[in-house]
Design a protein around this nucleic acid. Sequence first.
DNA 1: ACCCGAGTTCAAGAAAAAATGAACAAATAA
DNA 2: TTATTTGTTCATTTTTTCTTGAACTCGGGT
Lengths: 184, 184
Amino acid sequence: MRSAANATAPHPRPSVLGGAAHRPARAGLTAFEQETLAVFVGLARVVGLPKSYGEIYGLLYASAGPLNFGDIQERLGLSKGSVSQGLKALRAVGAVRLAEPAGGDRDHFVPETELRKLVGGFLKESIRPHLDGSDRRLAALGGLVGPSAAGPAERKILQGRVDKLMRWHRQGRAVLPWIEKLLG
Amino acid sequence: MRSAANATAPHPRPSVLGGAAHRPARAGLTAFEQETLAVFVGLARVVGLPKSYGEIYGLLYASAGPLNFGDIQERLGLSKGSVSQGLKALRAVGAVRLAEPAGGDRDHFVPETELRKLVGGFLKESIRPHLDGSDRRLAALGGLVGPSAAGPAERKILQGRVDKLMRWHRQGRAVLPWIEKLLG
DNA sequence: ACCCGAGTTCAAGAAAAAATGAACAAATAA
DNA sequence: TTATTTGTTCATTTTTTCTTGAACTCGGGT
């Protein structure tokens, strides 16, 4: 591809020229971008994702057009490693996609902006695996009530707890699709 | 005085749950208890709560009767500080309650076992606050699109993003009550 | 072939979160 | 009152998680 050093060519890069930066926290980010990042960094926290992932998604969200790897790294001031891993993870969850498969140049990234897909991807990649994992554990639990309980009364209570736990799982699973549906 | 703080302190303290220990990984915990802990520690992780909270709730869940502070500390081998904070937080979320206000002795704790209440408490204490917090941020975002955008086309796109973000929040808020309802 | 730039991987350092323990407060008993 | 037992708070230590940077791979381009 072309002039290696800089890939900023095809994209209108919002610059800090005219408007005065209010909070020069991160060089080269507009106030709009900074606020957007803050929103998504907070969101990342809530869902247990690293800050840098929130920043990457936030920057894409605050950009009118696709950005490539270099853009992201440069503007956020992150290491290549972080950007690489962040993009990989975000793509795995379906939060970020490649723009225009063709195009010749480097890969460009855009944010997925459909809430339903975003949440869907997250549920699928993060919640379901957990449910599946603990399902195995739960199966084993049933057999352990007996040896553990001191008497029949206690035994009954504990068995009830195990049953309830299994019910929770079923309910949890059942709710996920509804959440996605309600967000559509 | 003996500092009862640490794990290796052997105690003759019988708890509501007597029982033979099959896997003495954690001294004095039955296999059933250990498995149950594992389940809730995993759950705590998913929800972004410290492991110790999961252990505390798990132990209560695996116990047929109420436990007091000392029971919990001793059997889990946690420090007093951890138990204190854990119980406080779990109570704040409504995951743990005091059993029988009367009774004379120390406070006894029981787990909340209604899924709806558990989830409800969590949503109320953890998700809502976040939504409220970012609402303020979002309000500000609208005013920053103009100064940030390079041209009218871009401006329009970014404005669309901001609008969408606000819509997400509304949808998010709207879904929460449904989740609780679906779990009832 | 070689070189150069783009991106990935992973060990190691930095940062953040959680657990500890000791000082403290509250409540009870002697 | 003083001594004891119970629980809380918070600074410090420990553990976990995140980020970095350097070595490495992959793919043109010359």
